[in-house]
């Protein structure tokens, strides 16, 4: 077999093996590629940057499922880190039944990591004071509208069954007036409905974190300003991580950034093998023509 026949007939298992190695490699050999930050990610970051500390809450709606976790979970982690670093309280909630487990995990991961580093009481994060997770609610439209009047009316008890009125954070967070921005992390149409109902009625600012497949559909919402920013897919999450590292809020590379490194080199791999295949194809065809 000639060399160019060989490169156009690489066994698929070799490709699979290379691909696996390329995905795993960045986890152990971290490297940095300068991210080109998409304007929508920058806008979301800037918005959170502009919220005064210890004032209004950032509301995060965790609406992703285990399958879309690789894309949306790093967004949640990065957002939580950003808010906590700036002393902005966070209020979590979910409308997707599969989400609460993931939301609790996100909170626990970030809170534990930050509390380990905390040197005194003021630096530490406390449930009920710095963050609250309200849990899951069915009946999305009615619930998001009713929260305009009273959050406690929709969620009388939080996920851990505490009466919501008993939590200090909730005593000062009555309805959307006390919410700086609602950021919806989802793989479905929820962000659209946040714009349609609570925003048009109560003027809530809405941000979004969407899977890469969903994101292109939502560009018009950015143009009109209905979204105050958006992260799209793992790339969006990586950009956000990049921004909080740049600002000095955290030092560690995030999950998404590692993931993006994997993605980048996987893309390079795919591009390379396609080129190899075409070189092989080109030369074999030349042979055929000659003969």
């Amino acid at each position: 077999m000639k060399w160019y026949e060989a490169i156009s007939k690489i066994d698929r298992r070799i490709i699979y093996l290379l691909l696996t190695v390329f995905v795993i490699l960045p986890f152990f050999v971290p490297f940095k590629i300068r991210q080109n930050i998409m304007p929508q990610t920058q806008r979301l970051f800037d918005f959170v940057e502009s919220i005064p500390p210890d004032d209004k809450v950032v509301m995060i709606s965790f609406d992703y499922t285990p399958q879309t976790m690789p894309e949306c979970h790093p967004m949640a982690i990065a957002l939580l880190k950003h808010c906590f670093a700036r002393n902005i309280p966070v209020l979590g909630l979910s409308f997707d039944i599969q989400a609460p487990g993931l939301a609790v995990e996100a909170f626990t991961t970030v809170v534990n990591e930050l509390n380990l580093k905390a040197s005194n009481y003021d630096d530490s994060l406390f449930y009920g004071k710095d963050y609250v997770y309200l849990g899951w609610k069915s009946g999305f439209t009615a619930a998001v509208l009713d929260m305009g009047e009273s959050i406690a009316g929709v969620f009388p008890r939080d996920y851990f069954k505490h009466p919501v009125d008993s939590l200090p954070l909730m005593q000062k967070t009555k309805n959307y007036k006390d919410v700086a921005i609602a950021i919806v992390l989802s793989a479905s149409a929820y962000p659209e409905y946040w714009v349609l109902y609570p925003q048009s009625r109560y003027g809530v600012k809405v941000g979004a974190g969407l899977t890469a497949v969903m994101a292109p559909k939502y560009y018009p919402f950015l143009q009109t300003g209905q979204f105050s920013g958006m992260m799209s897919g793992m790339k969006g999450a990586a950009e956000y991580e990049h921004l909080i590292v740049e600002k000095g809020y955290t030092k560690k590379l995030g999950r998404a950034e590692t993931g993006m490194n994997s993605q980048s080199i996987v893309h390079l791999l795919i591009i390379t093998i396609i080129i190899l295949g075409n070189i092989g194809f080109f030369f074999s065809r030349r042979d055929q023509k000659q003969s």
């Binding site: 690489i10 698929r12 490709i15 699979y16 691909l19 995905v23 399958q67 996987v266 791999l269 795919i270 093998i273 396609i274 295949g277 075409n278 194809f281 080109f282």
Partner: peptide
């Protein structure tokens, strides 16, 4: 679902010829 990543690579390699 994740097998897709592999299959996209092999399908692209095999069939993306000019």
């Amino acid at each position: 679902f994740a097998l897709l990543a592999y299959y996209m690579a092999s399908a692209a390699y095999r069939s993306f010829r000019a």
